[in-house]
Simulated scan of single mutants.
Amino acid sequence: MQFGWGYAPTLAIEAAIHHHVFDVLDGEPKTLAETAAATGASERGLRSIMNLLVGLGFLARNGDKFTLTPESEAFLVSTKPSFQGGMFKHISRQLLPKWLGLNEVVASGKPAYSVNVEGDGTAFFQAFVHDIFPMSYPATQVLAAHLALGKREGTVRILDLAAGSGVWSIGLTQSAPNVEATAFDWEGVLPATRAMVERFGLTARYNFIAGDLNTTPFGSGYDVATLGHILHSEGAAHSQTLLKKTFDALKPGGTIVIAEFLVNADRTGPPGSLIFAVNMLVNTEDGDAFSFEEISEWLKAAGFVDARTLDAPGPSPLILATKP
């Protein structure tokens, strides 16, 4: 029964975010009537979702006053840099409608339409790349500390492939003044990248390349190349081609950084990554979730050495490898 009603927490949290419930409770507790007045939503509607959120541990109640819990205060207040609420909007508005066709997708093995084809995909990614920025940004801080780019002599060049919000290169560029970045993505997605880069005041240290991962040249001589949550939508064959192309774009001694929802070698877990594999079935032609063992073999075939993991905040550790 818990799994049967599994959609309810996602939609209740998203409704509370949509109506700014967590925002108006940030700082001081409020009664139901005060919350309704501050948000403009109905008391009946708020009573139902706020009681559920108390039961789920995302709100607390003391007498007739509702207040935030540590989890909602940290992750569901929209003005905070750790805000994760955009993911709930992405799931409820973009993903759930497609998952409702899962029976047909399983029968055919093909999505209703594919997000990794420019066109439909541009609109899809434009709508949520900023929302998922907080999911990866903490990992970029760990990566930046690990790479210690500021200790290197001269300019360090970053290639951010399928950049989206630019989160991976932004974190690395922020880490040291000698870092410059090139963001690569579809023409229709790059305005979202530019906007986020400008928000962080880094535009002067960025180049932008519009194109297709499979056909457009990346350039060469990069010190670091990032593939942040890209391989899962490309599928096994395209991913292997992409890794070889990335290898060619790096200078000797360069590092590739891969973020993914990793499954274990026998695909029995973890559950979150297995769910994400079904999400790729629903949304892409060939996408899937892969294991470290699979990706490390592809890296070796592309010419990389020393495939390794780096523990970082996020769904899975990062994968790093070096061009000899």
Rank of each mutant, 00 (worst) to 15 (best):
T155Q: 14
S273H: 08
G121A: 13
N51T: 12
G171V: 03
A139E: 06
S291M: 07
A289H: 00
F276C: 02
E43I: 06
E104W: 05
A74P: 10
G85Q: 04
R205S: 12
S291R: 08
N264V: 03
P317N: 03
A145C: 05
H229L: 07
D306V: 01
N283P: 12
S316G: 05
T203A: 13
L25C: 10
F261L: 02
K151S: 15
V167G: 07
F22T: 15
I132F: 10
K110M: 03
L227Q: 01
S92H: 13
V257M: 06
Q126M: 05
A60R: 08
T122D: 15
L213P: 04
R44Q: 06
A312W: 09
E104D: 12
E198W: 03
G55N: 05
N283Q: 12
V278R: 02
N51G: 03
S273W: 13
T35Y: 05
L242C: 02
F276V: 01
E43M: 09
L102K: 13
A249N: 10
D185T: 03
F22L: 08
Y222I: 01
I230E: 07
F88W: 08
E28W: 03
I319S: 07
H232I: 07
K244R: 15
Q240C: 14
K30P: 00
D212M: 02
H232M: 10
N283I: 00
I49P: 00
G55Q: 05
S72Q: 06
T122R: 08
H19C: 11
V156H: 00
I13C: 08
V189F: 10
A277S: 15
A183I: 01
N264P: 02
V77I: 06
V167I: 10
A195W: 11
G235V: 12
I91A: 09
K245W: 09
K80M: 12
G150D: 10
L250W: 07
R267T: 02
E34K: 05
G4C: 03
E118V: 14
I170A: 11
D248R: 07
V129T: 15
A237E: 08
V278P: 00
S92K: 09
A139S: 10
A139D: 08
W99D: 07
A107R: 13
K151V: 08
F292E: 07
K300D: 08
E34M: 01
A145E: 15
P252M: 10
W168G: 14
P317E: 04
T182A: 07
H19D: 10
G166E: 06
H19A: 12
V179R: 14
L56T: 06
K300E: 12
P313V: 11
D185C: 03
A289Q: 00
W186L: 15
A148L: 01
A302K: 12
A37P: 08
L11R: 13
